[in-house]
Amino acid sequence: MLSIKNLNSYYGRSHVLQGISLEVPAGKITSILGRNGTGKTTFLKTLMALTDRSTGAVVLDGQDISSAQTHQRARAGIAYVPQGREIIPDFTVRENILMGSFARADRKHVVPELVGELFPYLVENFDRQGGLLSGGQQQQLAIARALATGPKLLLLDEPNEGIQPSIVEEIERAIVRLNRELGMTVILVEQNIAFAREASDHFAMMEKGRIVAQGPIPALTDDLVHRHMTV
């Protein structure tokens, strides 16, 4: 699905990602784990070409997107739900979702039916301003916007960070459902080990801009977690 070879990424002069190689299998959830500041977010940003500069090969479904710009990667089928959600506060819920549709191949501006199924609250509040929603609802909105791009691959950056527990469960269910029922490939940056273990098929553990361990989720032992994630 997504094949990454020797990926390096830079902010100005600082060399943040150092030689990342990873195979992301189709139809699976791959969790990226690690402490804060180890480059997990930068990894997702690099996949979207949102850092200053990057080198290395990124191949999506046989299509080499290593030198593609951000909007071309979005149109190639990668959707990004950033940390902090980054919805547009003075756009309505509908406008926020439709923003994603600029990446659709057919350029049709429609809200996918799926959004109504997963997040009924959003559809009931189409004309509210995005900024008036709660943090959890904004997170749902950011996921809905990503779904509106018609993606093959969904990048989720700590989707449950700082969100009220009632909505955390709803979002977790939505992620699992997108994957199990609709076969969507997901790369999930996550701090919550319990959820990562429950939801994902594969993991990659990061430390100082490198991947230090990776494999199927049963290989994520308590020892590994202890060594690379305990503060």
Binding site: L50, T70, H71, A74, E86, D90, F91, M99
Partner: peptide, 24 residues
């Protein structure tokens, strides 16, 4: 218009606009 949505999205958040497929 659709062009206007793209312009306003870029005013608010150019990186996210690009990540949504807008040719900034």
């Amino acid at each position: 218009t659709s062009a206007g949505v793209q312009v306003r999205a870029i005013i608010r958040n150019p990186k996210m606009a690009a990540a949504c497929g807008i040719d900034v």
